[in-house]
Simulated assay, not measured.
Amino acid sequence: MINWKVRFKNPQFIIQLALSIIVPILAYAGLTAQDLTSWPILFEVVGGAFSNPYVLFLVAVSVYNSVVDNTTRGVSDSAQVMSYDKPKGSGL
């Protein structure tokens, strides 16, 4: 099991998760963030990504890599992390 409540309280996790979705899409489309100059362009790129199984696979692998804690066995968080109500060491 993964402690989603604590992970979403950590801004670094949110940024990492967002980038793990956005970067593969932009890379496949051959774009950089500077190329997304309007909302219609962004929606077109994202819509194209959702209709392409290969891009969805790349996004899934990227999200998996950002969610799994490599310091524990399997895909779940440790018992210690599951007991947290906020990220360790945070002032939240």
Rank of each mutant, 00 (worst) to 15 (best):
54 Y>F: 15
84 Y>N: 07
53 P>G: 04
68 V>S: 06
12 Q>T: 15
91 G>K: 12
25 I>T: 06
42 L>N: 08
58 L>A: 03
8 F>D: 01
4 W>Q: 08
31 L>D: 03
47 G>L: 07
4 W>E: 08
4 W>P: 06
87 P>N: 05
42 L>D: 09
62 S>F: 09
62 S>P: 04
69 D>R: 03
2 I>N: 06
37 T>A: 15
6 V>K: 05
66 S>V: 11
76 S>H: 11
66 S>N: 09
83 S>Q: 06
24 P>S: 13
92 L>D: 10
29 A>T: 04
17 L>H: 11
73 R>K: 15
58 L>M: 11
78 S>H: 00
83 S>R: 04
30 G>V: 04
30 G>Q: 04
81 V>K: 00
77 D>I: 00
50 F>C: 12
6 V>M: 06
14 I>T: 10
9 K>Y: 12
17 L>F: 12
6 V>Q: 06
12 Q>L: 15
20 S>N: 01
2 I>V: 15
30 G>L: 04
17 L>G: 09
88 K>R: 14
34 Q>D: 12
72 T>I: 00
5 K>F: 07
10 N>W: 05
44 E>R: 14
63 V>T: 03
58 L>D: 02
91 G>S: 10
61 V>T: 13
91 G>T: 06
7 R>A: 12
70 N>V: 02
89 G>T: 08
5 K>N: 13
80 Q>Y: 13
20 S>I: 00
90 S>W: 15
44 E>Q: 13
5 K>T: 05
35 D>P: 03
62 S>I: 05
35 D>T: 02
30 G>E: 07
88 K>G: 08
55 V>I: 14
92 L>N: 14
13 F>Q: 02
47 G>F: 09
7 R>M: 12
13 F>T: 00
35 D>A: 10
22 I>M: 15
84 Y>P: 01
30 G>F: 06
7 R>D: 10
73 R>M: 10
8 F>E: 04
7 R>S: 13
24 P>W: 02
73 R>A: 08
6 V>T: 14
32 T>N: 13
59 V>R: 02
79 A>Y: 02
32 T>K: 10
11 P>H: 11
31 L>G: 04
90 S>Y: 14
33 A>Q: 09
18 A>C: 08
9 K>I: 02
4 W>Y: 12
3 N>V: 06
35 D>F: 04
51 S>W: 02
67 V>W: 07
35 D>V: 02
85 D>W: 01
47 G>V: 05
30 G>M: 05
36 L>D: 01
6 V>A: 10
49 A>C: 07
6 V>G: 09
72 T>W: 00
47 G>H: 08
4 W>V: 07
23 V>G: 05
18 A>E: 11
39 W>G: 09
29 A>E: 09
79 A>C: 00
81 V>A: 05
81 V>T: 03
76 S>N: 11
89 G>S: 11
49 A>W: 01
47 G>I: 07
65 N>P: 00
22 I>A: 14
54 Y>E: 15
20 S>A: 13
4 W>R: 10
24 P>Y: 07
44 E>A: 15
53 P>M: 01
27 A>S: 14
2 I>D: 07
80 Q>R: 11
27 A>F: 09
75 V>G: 13
35 D>S: 10
9 K>F: 09
